[in-house]
Design a protein around this nucleic acid. Structure first.
Lengths: 114, 114
DNA sequence: CATATCGATTGCCATCCGTCGATGTATACC
DNA sequence: GGTATACATCGACGGATGGCAATCGATATG
């Protein structure tokens, strides 16, 4: 219960039972929203799908040809996934390898499964 | 396997094992992205949280005071949730009652739980 | 050093998004 | 009819987003 009502309902008849205040803490809601937002694009969602199903880390050069967007655009999407904490990357020589961070989707997944 | 590679990888050394093509069909990815995008805002995520935990339908006038935004803004968020197919509403006299559509989150939830 | 490759970054553009105040619409009540 | 209430819609504003071409930085390799 972290939201504080700013106004009282008008003192007329009840329109319905009082609501249960959101259980999700504001911080948790913000964090989950960050993850959901990052997944809110078909390309990024499919990127995560590929990375999750591929055991081990995946080279960017394997990812680019899968999608109908330019390499900078895909790099941009990968950055958004990184910023959301969903994936991380490693450099090895010329190549960059991406992988899904374990537990990154856990909180949102648990909330959705309620 | 719905994505068709646009280019071949350069014929040099392998950087990694070939990726598994995305299992998520493009349609499914787009649908899940629509839902994820709608959940990609803390207010909307908390709205869904409130609606899910409240048995029955909730009047808008109970929702507005929970958040630090104006009534038109909240109405806008509710519309976005409606457009994403996550919630629906009923009018009864002056009041509008919102509720979560059953199964609306099912596909995304299942995918996240993989 | 010169060149090629991979990936990230930059700059630009059109579009979308969140927000608000003002207004509209429908219902309820005097 | 007149007024109040509940909610939606509109219009406008600033900021974020997705896309690309061009460029940069780092690493290989000749």
């Amino acid at each position: 219960m972290q939201l504080t009502p700013k106004q009282k309902r008008p003192a007329g008849e009840r329109c319905c039972e009082p609501v249960v205040y959101p259980d999700v803490e504001r911080r948790a809601a913000e964090q989950m929203a960050v993850v959901a937002k990052a997944l809110g694009d078909p390309i990024r969602l499919q990127l995560v799908d590929v990375l999750r199903k591929h055991a081990g880390k995946v080279c960017v050069c394997e990812l680019v040809p899968l999608f109908d967007v330019s390499q900078p655009t895909l790099s941009h999407h990968l950055k958004r996934l990184r910023d959301a904490g969903i994936v991380d990357s490693e450099r090895q020589g010329l190549w960059a390898y991406y992988y899904v961070r374990p537990d990154a989707l856990k909180e949102l997944s648990a909330w959705l499964s309620l």
